[in-house]
């Protein structure tokens, strides 16, 4: 479904060009959960943002290809990529407080991917609200109605992250990208969020790209793992292979 080939991202806003990501290759099949692990600065977020078409910036160059069912996400026009963003790819960021707009209510933010396409989808206000509430409940927001009408600062961190997951899922994307979605949350909430993602994957078959530097989370959730260091993929394989028989020194360091 998703194939990343020879991805290279280079910053040139400093005197010397700085390679953030290099020679990254991996695939995610339908219904698969792929984890990316690696230390801070290893290029995990850059890889995720490249897939989500969020590297439309002037201070970097990117090369290689990212193929999502026949569309090259790295080299297509902004318009083509916009049609995919929020629609076929959902993105959940690390910090649920900062990734929500503080002056908009939660409900409209959850609905936004629908609202942007409301004409072509033929959705009414009520349809969108019903869909948003349904999803918010499905990710474990019991009092979805109240949260729908709350502002981000009025709900807890865990509720915010659940709402952000709901927001990423409103249009039933093929791929959900989660960039360290639980780092800002405490351990019990973290576990519940992982359960939500697992269940989502089991019930809807949505593929997930899950980024974390916490191996226990990866082990609990993912089918496959990509280990990154200094912008390079150092090892790749199924969770079983990597955890039982790590080949690379760095991977071994991470595990033990």
């Amino acid at each position: 479904m998703l194939t990343v080939k020879d991805l290279k991202i280079e910053f040139f806003d400093h005197e010397l060009p700085e390679v953030a990501v290099k020679d990254v290759d991996f695939t995610i099949n339908d219904g698969e959960i792929l984890g990316i692990v690696g230390e801070s600065g290893s290029g995990k977020s850059m890889t995720a943002m490249a897939i989500a078409g969020l590297l439309n910036r002037k201070d970097l160059t990117k090369s290689g290809s990212i193929d999502l069912d026949g569309v090259d996400l790295l080299n297509s026009s902004r318009k083509e990529i916009r049609a995919i963003q929020g629609n076929e790819i959902g993105f959940v960021f690390q910090d649920p407080l900062n990734s929500m707009n503080p002056v908009l209510k939660v409900g409209p933010q959850v609905e936004e991917a629908m609202r942007i396409r409301k004409k072509s989808l033929g959705l009414s206000k009520e349809d969108m609200k019903a869909r948003a509430l349904e999803l918010m409940k499905s990710v474990g927001l019991e009092d979805a109605e109240r949260i729908y009408d709350s502002y981000p600062h009025q709900i807890s961190g865990g509720q915010r992250q659940r709402a952000m997951i709901a927001a990423a899922l409103v249009l039933k994307p093929k791929l959900l990208i989660c960039d360290e979605p639980t780092t800002a949350l405490d351990v019990t909430v973290q576990k519940k969020i992982i359960d939500v993602l697992k269940e989502l994957n089991r019930e809807t078959g949505t593929s997930i790209l899950f980024i974390s530097h916490d191996l226990s989370v990866i082990k609990a959730l993912c089918d496959k793992v990509v280990v990154m260091k200094d912008g390079l993929v150092v090892e790749e394989g199924s969770v079983k292979e990597i955890f039982e028989n790590p080949k690379n020194d760095y991977t071994r360091q991470l595990i033990f």
């Binding site: 989500a52 969020l54 902004r78 916009r82 049609a83 995919i84 963003q85 929020g86 629609n87 790819i89 959902g90 993105f91 960021f93 910090d95 900062n98 990734s99 929500m100 707009n101 503080p102 002056v103 908009l104 936004e112 991917a113 942007i116 396409r117 952000m164 927001a167 990423a168």
Partner: peptide, 25 residues
């Protein structure tokens, strides 16, 4: 800011981002 990146990730264009999200802040 992060919320603007989130808005882009939902398929907003620059105009949508500006009027729906950024301006009020």
């Amino acid at each position: 800011k992060d919320y603007s990146l989130t808005a882009y990730a939902r398929g907003n264009n620059t105009t949508g981002l500006l009027y729906r999200h950024v301006l009020k802040n």
